[in-house]
Write a protein that binds this DNA or RNA. Structure first.
Lengths: 238, 238
DNA sequence: TTTCTCCAAAAGTGATCACATTTTTGAAAA
DNA sequence: TTTTCAAAAATGTGATCACTTTTGGAGAAA
């Protein structure tokens, strides 16, 4: 067996046994980061089971912290615990998709508006840099990097709000639609992608709340629009 | 001291066999129900530590299922994991309170509107019965029963929507403000409580979506209004 | 009486184990 | 080749253990 190296494993597993030099809850945090990032970049396939011992071996930890992390993510509806105990990425359904879209449209503009007064010119510059990278990824068809950067763009804005309530809710939403998004990009590619990031950046620079709300709404509609047509027009299985 | 009987423990500790599905994740579900219900009715005090072994002993299970449940609830922001690992009910802050209020006003009317077409006349009758009990509790000052019934009233409506996305989000919100609410009722009593439940029931009977949205919004504002003034006018600690 | 020190109790974390159930597989039979 | 069925491997669950850190209190010193 010998602990197969995996894309999930960020670094060498030197953390095992000898020296728990890291602080409290290090293993749990490591697993949490790995799985969250894996979900957001679409490295987990909807419908595919996520096994406890498998993940544990892949990350070089015992099944214990994995159990806790999987429970956490199940509580956020990022993972689904089936009646037999198996854990998997939930399959997307039209109903779920419509609900996620509705929730995003309600919450994200609100949080962006909350963040606007706390966004500095430096934040705007950072966002520009991220957006440039995003354009690169769209052209080159690098879906995984695109998803990571698109998440980074939105949450760079949202995190500025220092929100303790809305931000976790939106976090949960992204974890729910990201794995599905990945399968769609895998099928239709990324070249047709459009976003309203530049509108959003301009609105931030101009401190224009209405324009920022509008850009976020348009961005969500654009991004989820092609996904919606994809899933709602007789698609088979992932 | 062996397994002290507690308010958390719903029945005899010998839960084996009686409940359906008592084999798969039975202990976890038992703990989850106990803690959730405890949070919603305010039996946990904000700022008071919730110890793993303590809860486990109280519920007659090993610390293992408790760990998983506490992680779940922490992921829903119903509990807070402090840097030293201790778990407690988060203290309410003005900022958090405003955010919860905002999120409730955005999401709950939407979910009620989604539920409206699926609410039957029988549901309306059930809601009337619950509301009558609520009136009793307000008069008699039974804050704990009031909180349980008020939750039952709202979620009887919301659950009809069969929502998979919005409902868990709202669930998380209620877990966040309920323990704080309880401390407020303990201080100001329940007699001054007003709700718009009768308006909501009428709107459901008349299939009037706008009226239902309005009743939910008014109910939230009424309920959280007195709380808001309470917390925002120089209050010290819970 | 107050404050500081030190030690014992308690708590969280991660690993391992035992057990029941589920899933997979592989061989035999149709 | 397809179907059936039993053995084997794998999985989740709950309990227990060992270890480190934190908490709390008893007791001594000022």
């Amino acid at each position: 067996m010998a602990v197969r190296r995996s894309a999930l494993q960020s670094g060498p597993s030197k953390n095992s046994g000898t020296r728990p030099g890291s602080s409290r809850g290090a293993a749990r945090e490591q697993v949490d980061d790995a799985v969250r990032s894996g979900l957001l970049t679409g490295r987990f396939i909807p419908g595919k089971a996520v096994t406890l011992r498998g993940l544990a071996a892949e990350l070089g930890v015992s099944p214990m912290p994995v159990r806790e992390v999987l429970q956490r993510l199940a509580a956020e509806n990022a993972l689904e615990v089936k009646p037999n105990g198996r854990v998997q990425v939930p399959d997307m359904t039209p109903g779920r998709f419509q609900e996620v879209l509705k929730a995003r449209l309600l919450l994200e503009p609100e949080l962006a508006a909350l963040a606007l007064p706390r966004l500095s010119p430096k934040d705007a510059d950072d966002l520009k840099a991220i957006d440039d990278d995003i354009d690169q990824c769209i052209l080159s068809g690098d879906a995984e990097s695109y998803m990571r950067l698109n998440h980074a763009f939105h949450f760079r804005i949202y995190r500025a709000s220092a929100s303790e309530v809305l931000l976790p809710l939106i976090d949960s939403l992204w974890l729910q639609f990201a794995p599905f998004m990945r399968t769609v990009y895998g099928r239709v590619g990324t070249v047709s992608l459009e976003d309203r990031h530049k509108e959003a950046i301009r609105a931030i620079e101009e401190r224009n709340e209405a324009a920022l709300r509008g850009a976020i709404i348009a961005d969500i509609n654009d991004g989820m629009g092609i996904l919606g047509t994809e899933i709602l027009t007789g698609k088979g299985k992932a």
